[in-house]
């Protein structure tokens, strides 16, 4: 089974990288860009076919390591 994990910066936390990229897009003429937020994308291969178990385990991985929940949110999808 494969998990794809998205870690994003919480809405109330400043994302200076996103702001810089937004500025660059404006410079390039993409003036319609109102906001850019940058996050992380992880692909995790799991040696299990049990969806419920995978769900619990990946959630624990997110809470413990993938995201710092003080400043980041996470979500994930399971396939296979």
């Amino acid at each position: 089974m494969k998990a794809t994990v998205y870690v994003t910066i919480k809405q109330n936390v400043l994302d200076p990288q996103g702001t810089a990229v937004q500025g660059a897009l404006h410079t390039l003429g993409f003036s319609e860009v109102e906001k850019v937020r940058i996050g992380k994308y992880l692909e995790v291969e799991l040696d299990t076919n049990d969806r419920a178990e995978a769900e619990t385990r990946v959630k624990a991985m997110c809470e413990k390591l993938f995201a710092n929940t003080v400043v980041e949110d996470y979500r994930f999808e399971l396939e296979g």
């Binding site: 910066i9 936390v13 400043l14 994302d15 200076p16 990288q17 810089a20 710092n68 003080v70 400043v71």
Partner: peptide, 9 residues
């Protein structure tokens, strides 16, 4: 708390 990227990058 947490330490995040400097606001000036």
């Amino acid at each position: 708390g947490a330490l995040i990227r400097n606001n000036g990058l």
